[in-house]
Amino acid sequence: MPSNPPIEKVLEELRSGKIAGETKITMECLDAIASSTVYSNAKRPEDFEHEIAEYLALFLRERPRLILLANAARYLLNEVKQGIEKGLSVTELKKLVTLKAMDFNKSMRAAIDKIGEIGARYIEDGDVILTHGASTTVLSILAKAKEEGKSIQVLVTEARPEFQGRILAMALADLGISTTLIVDSAHYYYMKKVHKVVLGATAICPNGCIVGRVGTGAVALAAHEHRVKVYVAANTQKITAEVAFAEEASHERGDPSWVLPQEESRRLGIFVANPAYDITPPEYVSLIITERGAVPPQGVILIAKEIYGWPLVTFKAADFFEYLA
């Protein structure tokens, strides 16, 4: 592979942990891809596609579990492939990659506002809404509903042990929304008074399963039992083609010291478990609100197909390198 300073720089930063956070990493990788086109010596469009795929593979090898990065890669490759089909030259493809990389970065920022706009349509004046933990897309919807003059009451679970829900509660209260903070286990108690449940998601599987902050499944189940509508707000960049991701994510553990200091758990001889995510089956979800519109969980696959092409390219370790070969 020819030497490519922007790619090498980001790879180095990924290895040293200098850049952190899913969005930031994805943006840096896309910027590097956009700048890398200047250094490309590819003569044929297929060589160029291979080169871009190789760079993306290098990034993904460093961060194999970043859905956003995998989706950015999937999106770019799909665009390049379509460009080749349209008969674009290498120079035109270089321009296309730079433009699409910038587009993806821009769309990440714009998605939250669009979700807020679409989601607020589902909120009615006088609604009592329950949400679990903290999500920027949920905040966007509730802030928009308030801006539209709707009077709403929001119940926010704390999301122990990290208490992320408290940050959301503080933000909502600061925006003038009537907010009640409840302990996680109280969601069932309050569900009979709730009109709608609005939840965030970490990932959405093509079959409509929601990977969310632990406790999401329990809240959705309680809502389902009380015939309360469950809306999941997430941008399309959270749709993952890696079906196995849900399985893997469900095994991911948070730092147990958030629950009990390590020295104390050792002294008492207690094993502390702090699962990070759980999986909510599509049956418990009424609608998934994305920046492209609200769809039932079963419709996620159509959105994925539209953005990332079909069949969905998976980036799980061996699969991806096979694809490259």
Binding site: G21, T23, K24, A134, S135, L139, A143, Q164, A171
Partner: peptide, 16 residues
């Protein structure tokens, strides 16, 4: 303020 809160929450949750 809504925008500021969204940005703030986003950056906190990104790398909690």
């Amino acid at each position: 303020r809504a925008r500021t809160w969204i940005e703030r929450l986003s950056s906190i949750l990104e790398n909690y």
